[in-house]
């Protein structure tokens, strides 16, 4: 996979806040424009929900932030590290960037050949250089926090989807990220199992974690997030305080989307 062969560079900048800033970020695959001119900034502790129809570029936007998809234009700044489209970041810069950003996927992506405990401990050892004992200790704490300490010695295939997703959250948290990205974390789960994942996320948000959540869970967007962003056709069509955007959207495109979703 050519995730590192991107076209981006890193330079140091001064400003302290916000924690994350996207400036005119764009992404095209060939002639197909997936993201266009995205500006977004995130203060520490802020929780942002991104909603919108499928194919609107929500997931791609998330993946551009941690360079899983290198943007083709614009600039992504995390704290004082800026990654500019068009220059390749060094491996070390990329690893540092990704260490400060945790990511949770729609399909969990746990390592099926490792026990739950090893899943959570692996990157701590390989990326942070923790000893196995230290890593396992942290992992057990995190697994307790998501209510799965008793699953530590099981393999992921023995866990339900909701449990797997909570393990994936623990795995991401183990690297002590400053920002957590959630890419439709409950979309592969039936509603009941989705709830236990949402509960963990709600707790994280209340604990002050900075989060960006791409989701179809309208209640979560309205109740838990501070801000809602509605995307359509690769652009941000509306954003603002959650309740305001969800209840009285101003743009026609946002109204149309919310209308369709709420009518179900």
């Amino acid at each position: 996979m050519s995730l590192e062969s991107s076209s981006t560079t890193v330079s140091s900048l001064a400003p302290k806040e916000p924690l994350l800033r996207l400036e005119a970020v764009g992404k095209t695959f060939g002639t197909h424009v997936v993201l266009e001119d995205i500006d977004l900034s995130l203060a520490p502790g802020e929780v942002v929900a991104i909603i919108g129809p499928s194919g609107s570029g929500k997931s791609t936007l998330l993946r551009c932030i941690n360079q899983l998809e290198p943007p083709t234009s614009g600039r992504v700044t995390i704290r004082n590290t800026a990654i500019e489209a068009g220059h390749t970041p060094t491996r070390r810069e990329l690893m540092a960037l990704r260490r400060s950003i945790g990511m949770v996927f729609q399909s969990f992506n746990l390592f099926p050949h490792l026990t739950v405990l090893r899943n959570v401990s692996l990157a701590q050892e390989r990326v942070m250089g923790r000893s196995r004992e230290a890593a396992d200790k942290v992992s057990m704490q995190l697994l307790s926090r998501v209510g799965l300490a008793d699953k530590a010695q099981q393999y992921p295939s023995r866990c339900s989807g909701g449990q797997q997703q909570r393990i994936a959250i623990a795995r991401a948290l183990a690297l002590e990220p400053e920002i957590m990205l959630f890419d439709e974390p409950t979309s592969a789960l039936d509603p009941e199992l989705g709830l236990e994942v949402l509960a963990v996320m709600r707790e994280l948000a209340e604990g002050g974690m900075t989060m960006i959540v791409v989701t179809h869970e309208m209640h979560f967007a309205e109740d838990v997030s501070d801000r809602v962003i509605i995307m359509a056709d690769g652009k941000i069509v509306e954003q603002g305080p959650s309740r305001e955007v969800m209840r009285s959207p101003r743009t026609e495109r946002a109204q149309r989307f919310l209308h369709a979703v709420k009518d179900r």
Binding site: M1, L3, F105, N109, F111, H113
Partner: peptide
């Protein structure tokens, strides 16, 4: 092997060596 396995190792910031040694090769 599911593409998500690569993505997970990238998102965790694992090096190429560990990606293959710990995750890809065993599978």
């Amino acid at each position: 092997i599911h593409p998500g396995q690569w993505e997970a190792t990238h998102a965790l910031g694992m090096s190429t060596w560990y990606r293959f040694y710990d995750v890809i090769a065993p599978q």
